[in-house]
Simulated assay, not measured.
Amino acid sequence: MARFFTEREIRAVAVFLPLAGLLVAAVALFRPKSDPLEARRVEVAMERRMPADSIRLRPFDPNTADFDELLRLGLSKHEAVSLLKYRAAGKVFRIPEDLSLCYGISDSLYRRLAPWVRIGRRYAIAPREYRSGRVLPQLLAPSPFRIDTVSACYLRAIGALSKRQAEAFIRWRDLSGIYDMEELRDCYVVSDSVAAALEPYVIFPERRPHPVDAPVELNSADSAELRRVVGIGEKTVMRILRYRDRLGGFVSVAQLAEVPGVTESNYEKILKQICLDSCKIRKIDINFASPKELGRHPYMAPRTLRRLLKARQLKGGWSTAQELIDDHILTREEAARLAPYIEFGSAGGTADEKTTTRRDDAPEDAYPAEFQLETE
Rank of each mutant, 00 (worst) to 15 (best):
M1L: 12
F5T: 15
E7G: 13
E9W: 02
R11I: 08
A12M: 00
A12V: 04
A12S: 02
L17C: 14
P18V: 10
A20V: 05
P32K: 08
S34A: 12
R40P: 02
V44N: 13
D53S: 15
D53E: 15
R56N: 07
F60G: 03
P62V: 12
A65E: 15
F67M: 06
L70H: 01
L70P: 06
L75Y: 07
S76G: 10
K77R: 14
R87F: 10
S100F: 10
I105R: 01
S108W: 00
P115S: 04
W116Q: 08
I119Y: 06
G120H: 05
I125V: 12
P127R: 01
S132F: 11
P142D: 12
A152V: 01
L155H: 10
A157F: 02
I158Q: 05
Q165K: 03
F169Q: 09
R173V: 07
I178N: 13
Y179S: 13
Y179V: 09
E183K: 02
D186V: 03
S191V: 00
A195L: 07
E206H: 03
E217Q: 13
N219K: 08
N219E: 10
E234W: 08
R242S: 12
Y243R: 05
R244M: 06
R246I: 01
L247M: 00
S252T: 14
V253F: 03
N266F: 01
Y267E: 04
Y267Q: 12
Y267C: 06
E268F: 10
I270A: 06
I274W: 03
D277G: 01
D277P: 04
S278P: 04
R296K: 13
M300F: 02
A301T: 06
L305M: 03
L305E: 05
K310P: 00
A311D: 12
G316N: 08
W318T: 00
L330P: 05
T331F: 03
T331Q: 02
E333T: 11
E333I: 10
A335M: 02
F344W: 09
F344I: 04
T356H: 09
T357E: 09
P363Q: 09
A369N: 10
E370C: 07
